Simulated assay, not measured.
Amino acid sequence: MAIGSMFSLLATASAGLLVLSFANGFWFLSSVRGWWLLSHQNIYQASKPETAPLVATEVVSKAAEVVAEVITETVQTASEVIQSENRPPDAI
């Protein structure tokens, strides 16, 4: 996703489409942040075959928690920006 976002960013920036460039930059940074978060997770090594489903369940659960935290942070930031007093006059 990061590579595709980077190529899209370059294409839209070279075409002069600044709004799309910012959107592609956002997706590139989000994918890099996601990669960074996943690379710093503790990954459990399954020593026995019967523990593999339990480990998979824990990994999926942890990934769901991380996604929920990211969504919560994004919604909170968006609501703070919407409720901000520094909005342009035409946004009232």
Rank of each mutant, 00 (worst) to 15 (best):
S5K: 05
A68E: 10
V70W: 03
E73I: 01
V67N: 13
S47Q: 09
Q41K: 13
N42V: 05
M1W: 01
I43D: 11
L10G: 01
V59F: 12
W36K: 12
F22W: 09
M1H: 14
I43S: 10
T74N: 05
T12W: 08
H40Q: 08
H40N: 09
E85I: 01
L18K: 05
S79D: 14
W35C: 04
I3D: 10
V32Y: 02
L29Q: 02
I71F: 03
A64H: 07
D90A: 03
Q45G: 00
F28T: 05
L37W: 08
G4M: 10
P53L: 06
V67E: 07
L37I: 15
A91R: 02
V66G: 02
Q41M: 15
E85S: 08
S84Y: 00
L37K: 15
A11I: 14
V19G: 10
P89L: 08
T74M: 08
P49N: 08
A46N: 08
F26G: 01
L10M: 14
A56R: 12
L17P: 00
L18G: 05
A23Q: 10
T12K: 07
F26V: 08
A23D: 14
A23C: 01
A23G: 11
A52V: 15
T72Y: 00
I82P: 00
K48S: 14
E69N: 06
G25M: 10
N86P: 00
L37C: 07
Y44V: 12
A64W: 00
N86S: 07
M6F: 15
Q83K: 06
F22T: 02
S14P: 01
R87S: 06
H40A: 02
S84W: 00
L10Y: 11
T57N: 04
V67Q: 10
V19D: 14
E58T: 05
E65Y: 04
N86W: 11
I3L: 07
G4I: 10
N86A: 08
N42C: 07
P89W: 10
P49W: 04
Q76F: 09
M6H: 12
R33C: 03
L10A: 14
D90P: 00
S14T: 05
A91V: 09
F22L: 12
L18A: 11
L38G: 09
K48M: 11
A56G: 05
A13F: 11
N24R: 06
G34R: 15
L37F: 11
W27A: 05
S31M: 08
V70N: 09
S31Q: 05
V59N: 09
I82F: 03
I43A: 11
T72K: 11
L38K: 13
S30N: 13
Y44C: 01
T74E: 07
V59A: 14
A63D: 07
F26N: 03
E80F: 07
W27P: 00
V32D: 00
A23P: 01
S47W: 03
M1I: 02
L29F: 04
S14G: 02
A68K: 14
A63S: 15
L29M: 13
L38P: 00
L54S: 07
A56E: 12
T12M: 12
A15M: 04
Q45L: 10
A15I: 04
L29C: 11
K48I: 08
Q41G: 01
A56K: 04
G34N: 12
E69C: 07
V19L: 11
F22H: 07
T72R: 12
A11F: 15
V59D: 04
